[in-house]
Design a binder for these strands. Sequence first.
RNA 1: CGGGGCAUAGCUCAGGGGCGAGAGCGUUGGCCUUGGGAGCCAAAGGUCGCCGGUUCAAAUCCGGCUGCCCCGACCA
Length: 577
Amino acid sequence: MKVSEYFIFSLKEAPKDAESKSHFILTKGGYIKKLASGIYDFTPLGFKVLKKIEDVIREEMIRINCYEVRLPIMTPSELWKETGRWDVYGKELIRFKDRNEREFCLAPTHEEIITDLVRFFVNSWRNLPFSLFQIGPKFRDEARPRFGIIRAREFIMKDAYSFDRDEEEAENTYWKFYRAYERIFERLNIDVIPVEAAVGAIGGKFSHEFIFLTDYGEDKVMECEKCHFISKKEIASFFVDVDKLMGELMREAQNQNKAPKKKVHTPATTTVEKLAEFLNIPTSKIIKSFFIKTQRGNYALCLVRGDRQVSEDKLAQYIGENFELADESEVKSIFGAGKGFIGPLRYRGRIIVDRTVLYCKDGVAGADEDDFHYINVVPMRDFPVKEIADISLAEEGDICPKCKSGNLREKKGLELGHVFYLGTKYSEPMELTYTDKDKTKKYVVMGCYGIGVSRVLASLVEKFGDERGVAFPPEIAPFKVHIIPVNIKDEIIAETTFKIYSEIKDVSLLDDRDDISPGEKFADCDLWGAPIKIVVGKLLKDKGKIEIINRLTGERKEVEAEKVKEEVEKYLNAKNE
RNA sequence: CGGGGCAUAGCUCAGGGGCGAGAGCGUUGGCCUUGGGAGCCAAAGGUCGCCGGUUCAAAUCCGGCUGCCCCGACCA
C-alpha cells in the first residue's frame, strides 16, 4: 500500500483528554476517531488491526468446531422479558421504540437472541451438542466511558455460546473454550492471567476471566509478589493459619485468669470507627456483626474483624445463594437492639465466623442492647465458633493462599475474556429443551464465552506502545513493513525504493509522499505500527546499502537492496513458527 | 447517579460589553528544503454549542438546555 493512495492520517497534537497510552496512540496515529462519548470510528488502519485480531480468534473458534453466525443488534423486548433481564438491566440497556411503539433494545450481549434461534431448531438429542459464535458490536450505555476504546459504549466483541445435553458434556465444552482462549491470547502476544471470577449464586459452576494487568484496568486483582498467583480482589483468598489460631484461642478460652466479658456503655457508637474512637482501641479489636437474610429466607449472623471488609461475593459463594442485609425491624425483633449493637453472645442461630475473627483474643462485640457493647470478649469462651469461613476481602500485605509465604499486592487488571458456565439459566426460562434418548424432555445446558476484541487492540497498544508510537507483533500489525524513502525526489533513491516495494508489496506500507519532510515520515512510521522499518536514504548514496530496523527488538541491519526481501522473509518466518 | 470543569477556525487554544474576533498547527497556491513533525511569501477558512433574558449594544453578563471531560458511585 502506498501512503499517497491510502486513507491514512495522523495528528500532530493528540487531544489532551487522551488519558491512557492506548487512547493517545490510537487517536494520534489515526486508528480511531471519537464520534461521541464512548463511541468511535475505526479508520482503515485501525480496522485492519482489528480484523487481524478477529482472524486469530475466528481461526481458533473454527478449530474447536464453533460456527460463525450473525445476530441482530436491534432486538425486541419480548425476548428480554422472557428471562427477566429487561427489568434487571438498568440504564445500561439502550431502549427505544419502533414506529408501532414496539419496544426494542440494542443488544449488550446475545444470550436471549441465540437461545431463541437455537430453540427454533433444536428438538432432539441428535441435534446436540454444538456451539456458535459471532464477532460484532455490543452496546452498553456505560455511566462513564473511559480510556478510549478500553471502556466504550459501543464496542466489538466476540461472543460464543455452547449447547450441550448434560452437565458433564457442558463442562468438557467449557474447558475446550478455556484452552482455546489460552491459545488465542498466546497468538495475540498478550499476556493474560486466567482467574476465577465471582459467579454469585446464580451464575452456575464456573467462570474464569482472562485478565491483562494494566493501570487502566477496571478490575482490582491481588497478586502474590513472590509466586505471582493472581486472583480477583472480590473473591481473592488469603492465608490464615486456622489450626494455629484455634489452638491459641482454645488456651485463651480455658485460661481462668483471663478477664471476664464486661458490659460497657457506648452511646451512639453505630459504626466501627466511632466505637474504636470512643473506647480508644484499634478497629482490629472489634468483632463486627451483621445479620443477613438469604434468598430462601434463612437468617445468619456473620462476624468479621472490625478492620476487615466483608466480601459479598465470597459470602454468597460460601452460603450458596444470594442474600441481603436483614432490615432494621428484623434485627430489632430478633436481637432487641439496633444494627450497630448486635453481637454473637446470645444468638442461638447460625453464626458464620470469618477467619480474621480468630485473631481477636479479647475483642469487643455488641451487647444486643442499644448503646452497649461487651469488652474482653473471647471467641469460643463467650460465643460458639462452629462455622469458620473465608468471607472477608483480601488486602495488601495478606499472605498468599497458594505459596503461603509471599505478600499480596493490589493491582489493576482489565478483563479481556470471560468464559461462563451458564447451566440452564437461559434454557429454562426460554424453554430451550430437547427430547433425550429416554424420551424425556430436558433442558439444554449452556455456556457463554466472550472476548472484547476492541479492548484487546487497546491492550496490545498498552503493551507494545511508548510515547512516540507502537510496533505491533507481525501477526497483528496492520503492515509488517514500513518503507521510508528519505527523499523520493532523488532518482536513485526512488528507483531502489520502488524496486524493493514491488518485491514485498503485500506486507508493506510505502511512504511515497514527496511533499513532506523526513521527520514527518519517521514520526508517522512510529505511529503506524509496522514491526519492520526500512529506510532508503543517505546510506544508499554513501555505501549502496539499505537500512532495516526491527522495531520490536531495536536490532538494525545494513543490507544490499537485493537482500531486503530475503531479510524480511527471514524475520517474518522466524516470528511465525 | 452525585460532585467539579469546559464549549471561540479542521486540530490545540488565547481573548473577554462597542473597533474588521486572534495565534500556532493543518489546508490551498508559490518558493525553498530532504535522516526526526524544517523555513519564506500569499490566500481561504467562524451561527464564538443551542434557546431565552439584561443592555442603546452580548462571543463577552445572567438563566435554562445540550454536548464533552475529570473525580467518585455503578459496570451478568
